[in-house]
């Protein structure tokens, strides 16, 4: 029983991270209807930038975090301006493929700059595991969870109450109407990409902290697809809740199914769940039911 609780708690903590990355996907999708499959590589890039700031430039962590967020803003605006804007109105396949292409370019670029060596992150959180009383959470995971929750709440507050957030929601619900109300849709698109990239880099730093960084850590970004589909592609709350569900289910698979098949089931479990959701409820838990039956 103890191990079960432990696994569930670990799953919840992982789920918080998934929720944060899923938030990045959803922020971009909601405003611009683009599913950014390069999200994983945004994460990796964030982790590498932060890593370089900490080890090469030797700045304190909060400054490194701030600089990484600035880098994320630059990346977001650049990607939106240069790559996505020419493709507005193109079919789904073009938009999907361009983000995949972007991911490949980023991955290759990082391979050239940082080489494919696996690195561990410098210690930024106190190493003591966090004891909840009934379960113990490893320090990285706990602090990651805290970061993810703070990030998520910050994004939620911005989205709900600030002028910018209202503008973003307006664009998400109807671009024409938003334009006629004097909202700059271009600006909102750029902003959505910035927010998405920021969520991704925070996720990247946290994950890098837990399991070390390498060029290939971005593959986790694809797993998060299961989260956003379960939550509904355009629901922020759904993404966070689904993050927890997938995190727990994934860890339970690791506990119960892995010994049966000899490992590896944990990593593929989100994709099985993904297929199931698509068959039963394609618009997810809270997504808009826009899918027409064909």
């Amino acid at each position: 029983m103890d191990i079960l609780i432990q696994v569930i708690v670990t799953g919840l903590a992982t789920g918080g991270l998934y929720g944060l990355i899923a938030l990045g996907f959803v922020l971009i999708y909601k405003a611009t209807s683009v599913l950014n499959l390069a999200m994983g590589d945004f994460m990796t890039l964030g982790a590498f930038v932060c890593f370089t700031m900490l080890t090469q430039v030797k700045v304190p962590f909060y400054l490194a975090l701030l600089l990484t967020l600035v880098a994320a803003i630059v990346l977001g605006i650049a990607v939106e301006r240069i790559i996505l804007r020419p493709l507005i109105g193109e079919p789904v396949i073009s938009v999907i493929m361009v983000t995949i292409g972007l991911g490949i370019i980023l991955k290759g670029g990082m391979y050239i700059i940082w080489t494919p060596i696996f690195r561990s992150f410098p210690q930024i959180f106190p190493p003591k595991p966090f004891n909840l009383g009934f379960a113990i959470v490893p320090s990285g995971l706990w602090w990651g969870f805290v970061f993810a929750i703070i990030g998520t709440i910050a994004f939620l507050l911005i989205f709900k109450f600030s002028r910018t957030g209202v503008a973003m929601r307006a664009v998400a619900s109807d671009q024409q109407a938003a334009l006629s109300m004097g909202i700059s849709v271009r600006w909102v698109f750029a902003l959505a990409w910035c927010f998405g990239a920021m969520a991704a880099v925070i996720g990247g730093i946290v994950i890098g902290n837990i399991s070390g960084i390498s060029v290939y850590m971005g593959d986790i970004g694809l797993k998060v697809l299961a989260v956003i589909i379960l939550g509904g592609l355009d629901s922020i709350g759904g993404a966070i809740l689904a993050g927890f569900i997938i995190g727990v289910l994934e860890n339970l698979t690791g506990l119960y199914i892995d010994p049966l098949v000899g490992g590896g089931a944990k990593d593929v479990a989100p994709f099985f769940i993904l297929v199931l959701i698509l068959m039963i409820r394609p618009y997810g838990l809270f997504g808009k039911e826009l899918i027409e039956r064909v």
Binding site: P86, L87, V98, I104, I105, L106, K107, G108, G109, Y111
Partner: peptide, 18 residues
């Protein structure tokens, strides 16, 4: 040239699409 292959591959996709 090892990572260059990937980069060029990605650039090809993006350039053709745009």
């Amino acid at each position: 040239f090892v990572p260059m292959k990937e980069v060029i591959f990605g650039v090809l996709i993006v350039l053709f699409l745009i």
